[in-house]
Computed example of a mutant assay.
Amino acid sequence: MRAITLALFLAAPLALSATDAQAFGAHVTGVHITAAQLDALQVGTTRQDDIRGQFGTPARREQVGDTQIWYYDYVKIPPFGKNIQESTVFEFNAKGVLVAKSKTNAVGKTGNPLLDAANGK
């Protein structure tokens, strides 16, 4: 009976990790915005408060003339497989209304010196 209990106790972490095997042991930073979430945001109607409420405060912001640009960076480094690096970009007019949105497959500086060095930044 003790052997069965010990086997179940030792197997529990493996069973739990199998449910999310892709994320197990992965280093993740930033906010992951899916394509479906991005598609749901409407240019011309979505406001800054809507995006901040859904995804939180952006990692980076820039002001270019009357346009404010928000960046949501996301990095996932799994123990096996391919790294994911992307940045979701939102542009707003002076009234805070979304005028453009895009997603790139590379990010600028992450703020993590080790990741930045690994990425050549």
Rank of each mutant, 00 (worst) to 15 (best):
T46P: 04
T67F: 08
E91Q: 15
N83A: 10
L114S: 12
S102G: 10
A15V: 08
A117R: 14
R60C: 00
N112W: 08
T67D: 11
T104Q: 12
A18H: 13
D20Q: 15
V64D: 11
G65K: 07
S17N: 13
A40Y: 10
D20P: 01
D49N: 13
T104K: 13
A118M: 14
I77M: 11
P78A: 02
N83P: 08
H27K: 14
A40R: 11
L115T: 06
F90S: 03
R2K: 14
A3L: 09
D73T: 01
L41Q: 13
N93V: 00
F90Y: 10
V107P: 00
G120M: 03
L14T: 02
G96P: 02
A100P: 03
G65V: 03
E86Y: 05
V75A: 10
R2D: 10
G108Q: 05
K109D: 09
G111E: 03
V43P: 01
P78Y: 03
I51T: 08
N112G: 06
Q42H: 13
K95S: 11
V43L: 05
G30Y: 00
V89T: 15
G108D: 07
Q48D: 09
V107D: 00
P79T: 02
V89Q: 11
A3G: 05
G120Q: 08
F92I: 07
T57K: 13
W70Y: 12
L115V: 07
V99L: 00
V75D: 06
R61D: 07
W70P: 00
G30R: 02
T45N: 09
F24I: 02
Q85Y: 14
S17K: 12
K101H: 04
S87V: 14
G111A: 05
N112P: 01
V31W: 03
G25P: 05
V107Q: 01
F92S: 06
G25I: 03
G25C: 04
P79K: 06
Q42C: 09
P13N: 07
T34H: 06
V89P: 05
A117I: 05
D66E: 14
L114T: 14
D39N: 12
T29V: 10
S87Y: 01
W70H: 06
G81R: 09
S87C: 12
G44Q: 03
S102L: 06
G120N: 08
S102P: 06
K95P: 00
I77C: 06
V28Q: 15
M1R: 14
F92A: 07
L14P: 00
R61A: 11
R52G: 05
I51D: 03
I4H: 02
G53L: 01
Q63C: 01
A26F: 01
K121P: 02
A40K: 13
A18F: 10
A12S: 07
K109G: 14
A11I: 10
L10A: 12
L38N: 13
G65W: 06
H32P: 04
A35C: 00
N83T: 09
S17M: 15
D66F: 10
L114N: 11
H32S: 13
V75H: 06
V89Y: 06
R47W: 06
Q48F: 04
E62G: 08
